[in-house]
């Protein structure tokens, strides 16, 4: 554990915290452009967060302390996840403590707390959102895990930085298995982050909403934390995608501080591209009925398993 590693670690967490709302803003901006709307500024999510943070928080009369704690826990797990994912460097001290499986576990923890909090007040929308979130989750989680497994089988470890390093160091080659899982991963990303084919982040009070339904009772700083956590989640998923499928440019220990200096702009570039792609996908696809969502996710799960099988057969 060198000082550089610790710096990378700290920098990465701070970067995630700072950049996550901007990434969300960028996706929204791209979406607006693609849909011929006047685009909000990239900084809009920050303004939203600031507004929420200074507003007072209104708790429902029968909200329990679980409801008050949940935003902190969700936020904490998301930050912890950001510390594990090698978005800027591979020599992260925290990534020893949690590999890919633990990362999936952390994300599941956040989901469970979010759902429990949504059930706490006992409104129709809250429980509806919680139920749907868990429905999406129970299919998305294994699909994500299988995606990680394919990468782990290729590089013989479940540790994310090692996977990223291994995939970068290899001679460039086509990995059909990774292609399968990349598609699966994209589908999981869309579903887990309440993006369009599964959920619509822009609407409230439609019968099809999932994520927003769970946050209906939150306000003020609690809502700010939840929103921030959601932005972090999107950021984290993008970074998982980079680590597995576009690992080039993450700093290695051997490169020293120069690597870190190189990694930061590359990360920004990747984020910009990913945000554009995400906006494009959201623009060209139609929202699915809620009951088609399991089919969508089952397909993702299937693709990931298929990728695993193809890997075993072709042995790449």
């Amino acid at each position: 554990m060198t000082p550089l590693d610790i710096t990378t670690q700290l920098l990465q967490v701070l970067c995630a915290l700072a950049l996550a709302p901007a990434f969300l803003g960028w996706v929204n901006q791209c979406r607006a452009w693609l849909q011929n709307r006047a685009a909000p500024s990239v900084l809009q999510p920050y303004r939203g967060l600031r507004k929420l943070l200074i507003k007072e928080s209104v708790l429902a009369e029968n909200a329990s302390s679980l409801f008050r704690f949940a935003p902190y826990i969700v936020f904490g797990t998301m930050v912890a996840a950001a510390a594990i994912i090698p978005s800027m460097g591979t020599g992260l001290p925290m990534s020893l403590a949690a590999d890919g499986i633990a990362l999936v576990g952390l994300l599941a923890t956040a989901r469970v707390f979010l759902s429990l909090a949504a059930m706490d007040v006992g409104t129709a929308f809250g429980t509806l959102g919680a139920r749907r979130e868990m429905m999406v989750g129970f299919l998305a989680e294994p699909a994500l895990l299988m995606t990680l497994f394919v990468a782990a089988m290729i590089s013989h470890t479940t540790s994310l930085p090692l996977i990223a390093a291994e995939l970068t160091n290899r001679a460039p080659a086509l990995y059909p298995s990774l292609a399968f899982t990349a598609v699966a991963f994209t589908m999981v990303l869309l579903a887990e982050n309440a993006r369009i084919p599964v959920d619509n982040p822009a609407t409230h009070l439609e019968l099809t909403m999932i994520h927003e339904a769970m946050l209906l009772e939150y306000s003020g700083r609690h809502l700010a934390l939840m929103e921030w956590a959601a932005a972090l989640k999107l950021f984290n998923y993008a970074c998982i995608g980079f680590a597995l499928f576009l690992p080039w440019g993450t700093s290695r220990e051997a490169w020293g501080p120069a690597g870190l200096a190189l990694a930061a702009p590359l990360l920004l570039l990747k984020l910009a591209l990913a945000g554009g792609a995400l906006a494009l996908i959201e623009t060209v696809s139609a929202k699915l009925r809620v009951f088609r969502a399991p089919e969508f996710l089952a397909t993702a799960f299937l693709l990931a398993v298929l990728g695993l099988l193809v890997h075993l057969l072709l042995g790449d």
């Binding site: 001679a171 460039p172 080659a173 086509l174 059909p176 298995s177 399968f180 193809v310 790449d316």
Partner: peptide, 26 residues
């Protein structure tokens, strides 16, 4: 050693064929 490029392409083709078969199912 990675496979030669043409075999890689062939493997990719094969995987796509499999994917197409699944799409036909659905």
């Amino acid at each position: 050693n990675p496979l030669p490029l043409d075999l890689q392409l062939l493997n990719a083709c094969a995987s796509l064929l499999l994917l197409l078969s699944f799409s036909m199912l659905a």
